[in-house]
């Protein structure tokens, strides 16, 4: 079976080398392209020369403000998706960024899996061919109807299971930590997501529903750290 692959081209504008490299490593696989820029000037150069599906933009950069880059992009009517990544969890920054036309805003520190899921969501929204469906082997997700079917057979998922499946597919082939899953499903403000028993039962239910509908067994636990979605 063929899995539907979206090849994405991403630019990471981030001055912190450790974080930049991690993001690049995480995003570069399966034909995806991830370029990097470490400061204001090099970032401006890149966005003037190339187009990207999504630009990951740090607001605080050496020699400049990331929001200016966003303004340049919008002034030139470039269609690139923009995801702001900032250490400042300030509503002003967030609103300002979104006002300027950013597609999403993520506060540091974040899980790479969360970042990937957000980027994929932006890319999907931006794509011209109206990518209303995500297909992974025999699993089809209808994004508009929020319907999941396996080999054309609808599978009834709860809201959380649906979100979980999307999250898994966006990060297919990657190990996702239990923390990241808990935060994705319940938000990161509550301490309650530290209790991971219920994640296990969620995943168990999702897995069972998919297998019962005839899908392969794609979810596996990895060394107690987290879960991985994909073909073995």
């Amino acid at each position: 079976m063929m899995s539907f692959e979206t090849i994405v081209k991403v630019l990471v504008i981030e001055d912190e080398p450790g974080l930049r490299d991690s993001i690049r490593d995480y995003f570069t696989e399966g034909g995806n392209i991830c370029e990097t820029a470490h400061d204001y000037e090099s970032a401006l150069q890149k966005i003037n020369l190339y187009r990207y599906d999504c630009i990951l933009l740090d607001i605080t950069l050496p020699n400049g403000n990331g929001l200016d880059i966003l303004e340049t992009l919008k002034a030139n009517h470039h269609p690139d998706g923009v995801l702001i990544i900032s250490a400042k969890n300030s509503l002003d920054d967030r609103l300002h960024g979104l006002d300027l036309g950013a597609d999403d805003y993520l506060t540091k520190p974040f899980h790479l899996s969360e970042l990937k899921a957000r980027v994929m969501a932006i890319v999907r929204r931006k794509s011209f061919n109206g990518n209303r469906e995500i297909i992974f082997n025999e699993i089809t997700v209808d994004l508009l109807a929020k319907q999941v079917s396996v080999n054309e057979t609808p599978v009834k998922l709860t809201k959380k299971e649906y979100a979980l499946l999307l999250y898994f597919i966006a990060n297919k082939g990657k190990v996702i930590s239990k923390n990241a899953i808990a935060e994705h499903l319940w938000g990161d403000e509550i301490d309650i997501s530290d209790n991971f028993d219920f994640i296990y039962s969620h995943i168990k239910n999702l897995r069972k529903k998919l297998i019962d509908a005839g899908a392969g067994d794609y979810i596996q636990s990895t060394y107690g750290m987290g879960y991985k979605f994909g073909e073995h």
Partner: peptide, 19 residues
């Protein structure tokens, strides 16, 4: 605030290590 960036690095490195 300043702690957020190193935390982000640690977090991302752990994410990478897991792979």
């Amino acid at each position: 605030h300043e702690l957020m960036t190193p935390l982000a690095v640690i977090n991302s490195k752990l994410d990478t290590l897991m792979q």
